[in-house]
Amino acid sequence: MSSERRRLWSRVALAGPVVFVCAALVMCGGALWLPKGPAQIDNVVLPIVLFPAIWAGLFFYACLDRRLGRAWGVVSALALAHAALIAAHLLQPGAFA
């Protein structure tokens, strides 16, 4: 496979499944760091309502960043940070009390 073709498939993988998983993790993780707001619900409601915007932002960034490695780095870092946040919350005793 030529390097051009490899780059194309790498970008397709990043902008497709990887960005989707990252957007899902950002949505779920958002519940843990977004302010709750006056009704105590914004941290849960806003990430669900804004999921299409989170996904679209990440998708266009992954498609348009000229440096593919950097795009992988940014998206992966965002996904891993939120995954770690979610894991830390789930492992915390009495997290859902």
Partner: peptide, 17 residues
């Protein structure tokens, strides 16, 4: 409001959908 007991950004956005 649609969500919660007081007005909030989340409820307003949800209600507009």
């Amino acid at each position: 409001p649609s969500l919660g007991l007081t007005d909030s950004t989340g409820s307003a956005l949800f209600s507009l959908m």
